[in-house]
Amino acid sequence: MGMQGDFFQLLKEQGYQFGNPVAAAAGMDVPNATTILALKYRDGVLVAGDRRATAGNMVMYDRTDKVLEIDRHSVMAIAGVPATAYEMVRVLEHSFKYYRRTQLQELSFEGKLRAVSKLLKENVPAALAGTGAVVPVFAGYDHGQETAKIYFYDILGAEFEAVEYAVSGSGSPTIRGILHYVNTWGPQPLASLPEEQATIQALRLLTSAAEFDSATGGVNRELNLYPVVKLITSAGVQTIADADLKRLYEREVVRGRE
């Protein structure tokens, strides 16, 4: 009902159906591989993702944006089937706005988390059928607790809060180990890194993932292609410009520098 400010319910009343369970045809490759990561740094949360979309061993696209702003204070990084993931983001974006505009207050952070897992639950039949699995990482600023938080999900919609970092996608096993190592025995824990250091770590991690996972796109300097890196602080979501990523990459990531 409209009076409750529930946009998803409103869509359903209008005959909208989310997550149709369609079985994948034999031999059909659904695009689904990637690497996304979120980590807590000194001022909030950093979320980053590579830009490659693949289907089987085909590279479909090298300019995908998998780190999507849902509103001024939350971001969803998506791994899995892009068609479903983008639709989820669209539903969430409209749901949060609709709630704010009807109820005249921002949806609580818990409410936003619930909305994400609700969509994932609706999507279970499609996920199990093989054509709609999405494994997102959701990060946002919780104004109630005055801190930025990271949550990750399984394909069935279970929600887990990440204390320090979260990863998802086909390249994630590679960097999960690195994150653990760096965070535990590195010069300083991730949570104390300033913005620039956190960005450098993210670039190095995604470059490592691309090294071992063919479905993760690395940096392509010829085409001026860099990962998407966004920062979430109390001030909102901020995207790091390509020029800054290029500068950091050339100074801190490229091997063989003087």
Binding site: G2, M3, F7, L10, L11, Q14, R90, V91, H94, K97, Y98, R101, T102
Partner: peptide, 13 residues
Amino acid sequence: RFSLLEMAHVEGF
């Protein structure tokens, strides 16, 4: 206002 919000958001989506 509610009817406008409903119309606008369903159309926008």
